[in-house]
Amino acid sequence: MTVTAPPALEILGVEKTFVLHAQGGARLPVLSGVTLAVHGGDCVVLADPSGAGKSTLLRAAYGNYKPQAGRILVRHGDNVVDIVSAPARHVLEARRRTLGYVSQFLRVIPRIPVLDVVAEPLRAMGLPKGIARDRARLVLTRLHIPERLWGLSPVTFSGGEQQRVNVARVFVADYPILLLDEPTASLDAESRALVVELIREARAAGAAILATVHDTAVRAEISTRTVMLEDLAA
């Protein structure tokens, strides 16, 4: 298929080595020169075994990890932002409107009810509270989080419920780029299917998706391309 539009997400020669000063400066090389492009409508799934650096790459794409070398170009509106070298506020702005990131770790702020946790990304985009909450209700309903839980903090939720909240937080908005790190972890079959449905819809709507998925069945349902990091390394 000829692609005429530039990629939404372009990873170029990214190198990441962790230097552990507490262990006498031990060096842990994880990524060595990864290059990868993801276009709108594409869902690229990283299929390496654990420890290969898949999460590291996703975190780097989000700006959570800082690579030693390389560029990560994100198409943000009419501009291109290099997540690696851009000033902090540009990365924050890219996260606000362009980059959605689902990780396994829901950082729970006690006292915030799940409805507002899910509505927050829309509030950060400037949407009024009423509309943000309405959309949050829609996505929570789709993920079968019962209404009686909406006023509670996710602190007391089960692992599966918290994971669905993680997913809801990202899919409540229409991010052009999605970074999904094991989005179906800790979910039963029914919930997995709900999440897969959301991912496919986003892909059909033109989102560029980079994901790591352990489950081969889920992988088959969502990916347009499966790659191995070791093949992408320089």
Partner: peptide
């Protein structure tokens, strides 16, 4: 210096790593 989550999750300087740990 940097983004809060980046400095705390991927500390580079020896002292920052100590602080976070």
């Amino acid at each position: 210096a940097g983004l809060t989550d980046q400095v705390l999750d991927d500390p580079h300087h020896e002292y920052t790593q100590l602080l976070v740990a």
